[in-house]
């Protein structure tokens, strides 16, 4: 019995070790290598002990200043897209949670279906339209695109979360003379905060990391950080890997910390999002 337990225990230990290697090794390699002196990056076997240097970050600053503009653009676009998606989804989620009609129910179905249309499809008509409206290469275009591809999931999630808030609270507020917008702001929003955070995690991660739309709809002024990194990969023969690692580390670190910090809401959102639509 003890031997059996020992075997199971060591089997689990091996599985956990494999899991950690698989999940974290690529991340650890990038972050570690961004602090390694240039010659040591490709050392065999890899050096785990080295004198950390900020050389790659200073080179990034002097040679690829555009990357830092990219970080600023990514921040602005992520903030805008998240605000837009969260506000629109919360309002709609409230309406869907508290009302029911055949029209509303079928429009939820419509929201679910829309979410499954591949984003690349809409680039074909939107590309000429965005150019004609002269809004190409602006923050607003990406904000609207990113928010739109998450409002359907956002609405369904918010409906699920708001369903859990007792109706009696709305009714009590109504009796006290509060209007719909006041109820939404004073009763629903504070109590649905976990749902709002779950929606926000999805939009933040997506907007911060997105490549396709940024690639098609921006050129110079609104270029996001992932797009600048992709250009650095493109010139890989000339670029030194250290600088690429420094940029990747700076792009990755904030969103990784955010996901770690918010993991509870991410898990809640993923579960509700897949089973409720």
């Amino acid at each position: 019995m003890r031997i059996k337990r020992l075997i199971i225990g060591s089997g689990k230990a091996v599985a956990v070790a494999a899991l950690l290697l698989w999940s974290l090794l690529p991340i650890a390699f990038i972050v570690m290598s961004s602090f390694k002196p240039g010659r040591e990056i490709f050392a065999v076997p890899p050096h785990y002990i080295f004198t950390p240097t900020l050389d790659h970050f200073t080179t990034l600053w002097t040679r690829w200043g555009v990357f830092f503009d990219g970080l600023v653009n990514s921040t602005i676009i992520t903030a805008g897209a998240t605000a837009l998606a969260v506000i629109a989804s919360t309002a709609a989620g409230y309406a869907y949670s508290r009302n029911s009609s055949r029209f509303l129910d079928s429009s939820v179905l419509f929201l679910i279906v829309v979410r499954l249309i591949p984003p690349i499809v809409v680039t074909l008509p939107l590309f000429p339209i965005v150019n004609a409206l002269q809004v190409n290469d602006t923050h607003v275009v990406l904000m609207v695109l990113y928010a739109t591809f998450f409002v359907s999931l956002g609405t369904v999630l918010m409906r699920t979360f708001i369903d859990q808030i007792p109706r009696e609270l709305d009714e009590a507020a109504q009796i006290d003379g509060a209007g719909r917008w006041t109820i939404l702001r004073r009763v629903i929003v504070p109590l649905a905060a976990p749902g709002i955070l779950a929606v926000a995690v999805f939009v933040v991660v997506f907007s911060w990391n997105e490549f396709l739309f940024a690639f098609i709809f921006t050129a110079t002024k609104a270029k996001t950080a992932p797009l600048v990194i992709s250009e650095m990969i493109g010139s890989i023969d000339g670029v030194d890997w250290g600088v690429l690692f420094a940029a990747s580390t700076l792009q990755l670190a904030p969103v990784l910390l955010f996901v770690i910090f918010m993991n509870r809401y991410l898990v809640a959102g993923m579960t509700a999002g897949a089973t409720k639509g």
Partner: peptide, 19 residues
């Protein structure tokens, strides 16, 4: 461990390709 499994969710396609 759950957080460790979730970590790649935060990584962009671009950075994942670099890795």
């Amino acid at each position: 461990l759950l957080v460790a499994v979730l970590a790649p969710y935060a990584v962009s396609e671009v950075t994942a390709v670099v890795m």
